[in-house]
């Protein structure tokens, strides 16, 4: 397994410097080649809520600049899994994590790693669009930088436009940037949340059922967006919609009661699953 990322990766999380002073993300030529570098290496990952164990020792590698889908029935631990990748899981009182998660070969649960800095590299989009209701569209996009006091006024407009363009929302909102973000439609709000996550310049985008509150048209737009974002970001998407997993992802992991049943290229999972339980799930026998 080739180690991924810039050689300075291990220092990144401990850096107190702003995300924007970081040297530009190295463009990989291997984006479309078969072999992709590993972004996340997950080993024996276990997670608990109180005394209830929800993840039972997961092992998987997530490739850089690929879309990885996590599927499985409700309560199988898929949301918990991605919340372990940006250390959001531990925000819940009584929640606990075991095992190892390496991002660009650095243990994100290692001593001295600041989860706050980690989350600036690993962005997240939630199930229900959650723009900040007290902020305008522009302020929502810039919220991550403003919250963390990294915003240089001179670049604000530039960053705002770039993030909104990346989230395919610019053309729809460019004339009303000062209007409240909560006034947009559900699909637009979700793209606003994606823009907000992108403005912080993460490497990874975690998406926790990002379309489950959206109509089919808005869903299609988000899926198109995922296709374009794939060129620059590593994307991990949790979905309960198997067609969606098939449409957007390169690899798919099937989770069942907190265990990884099967992890393979998406077309193989959906055409020739090697595990009987995977087959039963994707053919709709349960779940």
């Amino acid at each position: 397994m080739a180690s991924a990322g810039a050689p300075t990766a291990p220092e990144k999380l401990r850096m107190t410097q702003s995300a924007h002073s970081r040297p530009g993300r190295p463009r990989e030529n291997s984006v479309n080649s078969e072999e992709a570098a590993t972004k996340f290496r997950v080993r024996r990952l276990a997670a608990w809520f109180g005394s209830q164990q929800v993840l039972h020792g997961l092992d998987l590698d997530i490739s850089k600049q690929r879309v990885t889908a996590i599927i499985g029935p409700s309560g199988c631990g898929k949301s918990t899994f991605i919340r372990c990748l940006n250390r959001m899981h531990e925000l819940v009182p009584s929640a606990r994590v075991g095992g190892e998660v390496r991002l660009d070969d650095e243990d994100i649960y290692g001593p001295g790693v600041d989860p706050v800095l980690l989350r600036r590299r690993v962005g997240m989009v939630f199930q229900k669009p959650n723009p900040f209701p007290s902020m305008s569209i522009r302020d929502n996009v810039l919220a991550g930088l403003r919250l963390t006091h990294q915003l240089a006024r001179a670049h604000a407009n530039e960053i705002n436009e770039k993030a909104l363009r990346s989230a395919a929302l610019w053309d729809e909102v460019k004339d009303r940037l000062d209007e409240p973000g909560a006034g947009l439609s559900g699909g637009q709000q979700q793209r606003l949340c994606i823009a907000r996550a992108l403005a912080v310049e993460p490497d990874v985008l975690l998406m926790d059922e990002p379309c489950s509150a959206l109509d089919p048209i808005a869903t299609a737009r988000i899926e198109d967006l995922i296709h374009t974002l794939r060129e620059r970001y590593t994307i991990v998407i949790v979905t309960h919609n198997m067609q969606q997993a098939a449409r957007v992802s390169d690899r798919t992991a099937f989770l069942l009661t907190g265990e990884l049943v099967e992890y393979a290229p998406t077309d193989r999972i959906f055409t020739a699953p090697s595990d009987k339980r995977t087959e039963d799930y994707i053919t709709g026998k349960f779940g």
Binding site: A19, N86, M88, L91, V116, L117, L118, R119, R120, G123, M124, F126, K128, N130, P131, F132, P133, S134, A143, G144, R146, L147, T148, H149, C193, R196, A197, V200
Partner: peptide, 22 residues
């Protein structure tokens, strides 16, 4: 709502920044 706090944490805000600004 919790979703707004989580939105803030996910952007890399500290607890105090989240309380103060969200």
């Amino acid at each position: 709502p919790l979703s707004l706090r989580e939105g803030s944490y996910a952007l890399g805000a500290t607890r105090w920044q989240t309380i103060r600004q969200v």
